[in-house]
Nucleic acid binder design. Structure first.
Length: 174
DNA sequence: ATATGGATTGCCT
DNA sequence: GGCAATCCATATT
């Protein structure tokens, strides 16, 4: 059987692009106030280090980007445009920069709560953006540096059944 | 100490 | 399609 397990250190400690691709279809789980919120990852984006101008780690480590050089399997959450939190997972071995931005989810558990968190009534457009899903799952900077391999408030479930999906991989746009 | 602009979203026309 | 909203990390003076 395809047993669902929490993605571990070894999963994240690989090339950023590979982790980005393998994250598709897995389940992001958020536990907060005794409630379970979850969604299936349907869009990701890879950010590496030097050589990737769009990456925060492009010009070496800064206080903010240092975590991208740190242990894989940690969350990198940062605040953007003065109003959105963006969730990444750190990849590559310690010392090498890399992170994958979670761009979109398909709603799973806790739908009613996620709608409330976003003050929306429709399923449509609930989790289809990096800033939207963090709002729906109440993911903020307090989770920056969170170890995703240890369960608890935030983790990612792997080994989820694939349902005949098409994975499209391409260069980043923009 | 100050200036700049961003891994976005939602509302406007 | 265009653009304002709005905080903060980073670079510059």
């Amino acid at each position: 059987m395809n047993k669902e397990t929490i993605l571990d250190h070894a999963f994240y400690r690989r090339s950023t692009v590979r982790v980005a691709r393998d994250l598709l279809g897995q389940i992001l789980v958020r536990k907060i106030n005794g409630e379970l919120l979850s969604g299936r990852i349907v869009e990701t984006e890879a950010y590496t280090g030097p050589g990737d101008p769009a990456s925060h780690a492009a010009r070496g480590a800064t206080p903010r980007s240092a975590i991208m050089f740190g242990r894989p399997g940690r969350a990198y959450v940062y605040f953007c445009y003065g109003m959105h939190h963006l969730l990444n997972v750190v990849t590559e071995r310690e010392g090498t920069a890399g992170a994958v931005l979670i761009r979109a989810l398909e709603p799973g558990e806790g739908l009613a709560r996620m709608l409330r968190n976003r003050e929306r009534n429709k399923l449509r457009g609930l989790l289809d953006g990096p800033g939207k899903l963090t709002q729906a799952l109440k993911i903020g900077r307090e989770l920056n540096g969170w170890d995703l391999t240890g369960g608890g408030e935030l983790y990612i479930l792997g080994g989820t059944p694939r349902i005949g999906e098409t994975v499209i991989a391409g260069p980043r746009i923009g």
